[in-house]
């Protein structure tokens, strides 16, 4: 009961943050709304019993990546953005696209919800090993070692690319 109540509260905060991210005109306000979204997502993970994922969500996204975003915005001293009237593409393709997407996801959840995997909201820690540190370590370093290492190399290449571009500018 408490879990479901908290889930609804944090879900609402998450959606409110996401909407605020789009509505705000100042880049800092938008970035901070994104931090709120990240933090409430982490709390939802925590409610689902995935403590490790929740902590990593906070440390990596809210604590490192978003700090860099804020840092760059501060360095560039970006001012408030001007509001345009919106492109016509958004109206003619975007809005129907969103409706189709929402409809499909909703229909899938309604029709196929019974044979999808489910996670109980009321699971106390220990009953499910979903998302705890050992389970994730086993998945990453045993079952999916090769994809994990390839992803690491990809990220490394991106970093090296950034360094090369940075050197060229200076």
């Amino acid at each position: 009961m408490t879990h479901q109540l908290l889930f609804i509260v944090f879900g609402l905060i998450c959606v409110a943050g996401a909407i605020n991210l789009l509505v705000q005109r100042h880049p800092i306000s938008s970035a901070l709304s994104l931090v709120v979204v990240m933090a409430s997502l982490a709390l939802i993970y925590l409610l689902l019993g995935a403590e490790f994922v929740a902590a990593i969500q906070v440390i990596v996204y809210a604590g490192a990546i978003m700090v860099l975003f804020v840092f760059v915005i501060m360095l560039l001293n970006a001012g408030a953005e001007e509001r345009t009237r919106g492109s016509r593409i958004a109206l003619f393709i975007g809005v129907p696209g969103v409706i189709v997407l929402a409809g499909t996801v909703g229909w899938l959840l309604m029709a196929g919800g019974s044979h999808m995997g489910s996670v109980s909201l009321n699971s106390s820690s220990g009953s499910s090993s979903f998302g705890d540190t050992h389970a994730i370590a086993n998945l990453l370093f045993r079952n999916f070692l090769l994809p994990f290492e390839i992803t690491s190399v990809l990220i490394l290449i991106a970093i090296m690319g950034a360094v090369v571009l940075g050197k060229k500018e200076g």
């Binding site: 933090a39 403590e51 490790f52 902590a55 990593i56 906070v58 440390i59 604590g63 700090v67 705890d132």
Partner: peptide, 18 residues
């Protein structure tokens, strides 16, 4: 106690940067 206590401290500290 919380089984990710150490990570919570690291996470909270990183939010403190804001």
């Amino acid at each position: 106690d919380i089984n990710i206590g150490l990570l919570i401290i690291l996470g909270v500290t990183s939010i403190g940067v804001y």
